[in-house]
Design a protein around this nucleic acid. Sequence first.
RNA 1: GCAGCAGGCCACCUUAUCGCUGCAAUCCUUUGGAUUGAAGAGGAAAGUCCGGACACCAUAGUGCAACAUAGCGGAUAACAUCCGUCCGUUGAAAAACGAGGACCAGUGCAACAGAAAGCAAGUACAGUUCGGCUGUAGUGAAAUCAGGUAAACUCUAUGUGGUGCAACGCCAUGUAAACCAGUGUUUGAGGGUAGCACGCCUAAAUUGGAGGGUAGGCGGUUUGAACUUUGAAGUAAUUCAAAGUCUAGAUAAAUGAUAAGGCUCGACAGAAUCCGGCUUAUGGCCUGCUUUUUCU
Length: 139
Amino acid sequence: MEPEQSMGSIKKEHTFSKKEKLKGKKAFEVLFSEGKTLKVYPLQLRYLPMDFGDESKVKVAVVTPKRKFKKAFQRNRVKRLLREAFRANKSLVFNNIEGNFALLFLYIGHTMPTFSEVEAAVRELLQNFVKPELHEKNS
RNA sequence: GCAGCAGGCCACCUUAUCGCUGCAAUCCUUUGGAUUGAAGAGGAAAGUCCGGACACCAUAGUGCAACAUAGCGGAUAACAUCCGUCCGUUGAAAAACGAGGACCAGUGCAACAGAAAGCAAGUACAGUUCGGCUGUAGUGAAAUCAGGUAAACUCUAUGUGGUGCAACGCCAUGUAAACCAGUGUUUGAGGGUAGCACGCCUAAAUUGGAGGGUAGGCGGUUUGAACUUUGAAGUAAUUCAAAGUCUAGAUAAAUGAUAAGGCUCGACAGAAUCCGGCUUAUGGCCUGCUUUUUCU
C-alpha cells in the first residue's frame, strides 16, 4: 500500500463521509477507557491510536450528552455544528500526523453555541492534538 | 371595531458555494469507487395514553375470577375515536361539556331537621271491632311506607392470552451445563404456568443431530386500512367507482454550514416496524357565527 494511494483516496479536502465516521460499541468503550483527553471549553477531545482495517487514517465521532441537552433537536444541532467544524478544518490533522487515530469530540458546555464558537474551539483542539504527536515522533 | 365561539390553512423565503443519506442510470477489473440525475423529518415526528396490523410463544386451551367500556342509532380493520340525535348541566348567545345502562335481584349508605330514614322508638288530638288498630298534626326531598344513591358493593350487555421489530428469519464465527430426535424411566412426585381449579409443560443417563449468548452483516424496512383529482350515495362520520402518483428509510444514527438579499424578523420542536386516534407544547393567517354592554 503506497502512501500516495491512501492520500489519493481523499480527493477533496473538505469531506466527511461514512468511512471517516467512528462506529462500533467496542471502539467507543476503548476510547472512553483508554483514550487521552484534551480540553478547550466548551469541547473535549478524546483520542487514541487505532487500526481500522481500511484506508481511513482518522475516524471521528461526535457526542452530545443527553444530560446537558434534553431535547433531541438541540443535540442534533450541536452535533451538526461539530461535524461541520471538523469538516472545514480536517486538513489540520491530515497534513500533520502519522498513524491512525480515533477521535471523539465531546460537547461539555451547557448552552447552545454558535458556529464560530465551535469552529474556534475545534481549531484549537486540533492544533493542540497535532503538536504533542509531532513532538513524540521527533523525540 | 372590541370581546367571545367554531372551523380550515401555512410552518421564513430566494440565490450561490462547500458538504451528508439512501435510490436510479452510466462507467471502472472485483470488495468497492467515480460521474450524472431526481428525492430527503412533523403538525405535533413528542407523551407512550387507547385501538389495530405484523411476529413469536400450550407458560398460548377451558371455566371462574379480574379488568375495560356504557343513552339511542350509525361509521370503521378496530377503539375509550369519529358522526348524528335525545336528555342533563353551563352560558346572554354562538356553543361547550357529561363517570347519561339497571336500585319493582339482593346487600349497604344517607348531612341538617325529626321520636323514628330500620331492628329500634313513638308526642298531641280524634276515631275505634279497645289490639302500640286507624286517621290527622308536627320534621323533611322522602315517613313501619315507598323514595334517593350504582365516581357503594352488585347486576346486565359487549370485549380482553402474553410479549413487543432490541419481535422474528437468515449468514459468518463457533465452546458448553442449553436445543431437537431416538432409547430409557416414574407415585408424572417435586417444579413451572401474571389469581384459583382443570389442563398443559418438565427429570437423570446414553446415542446421534444441530448449534447458543455477546459483538458484526443481511432481511424484516417501507406500496400503504397510502396520497391527489373527479364523479356517485349519505344530514354527517364515511363508503363506492374511475384516472393518476411513488412520496425519508438513518443505524454513535443522514437535512447542515457559509455569503448575499428580502419581509410580517421566523414559535413548539427531529422519523427509528407501520397505521387510526387521544393528550400535551406552540407562532401566524383566513373564513363563518354570537350580541349582555360600549362606540359609530
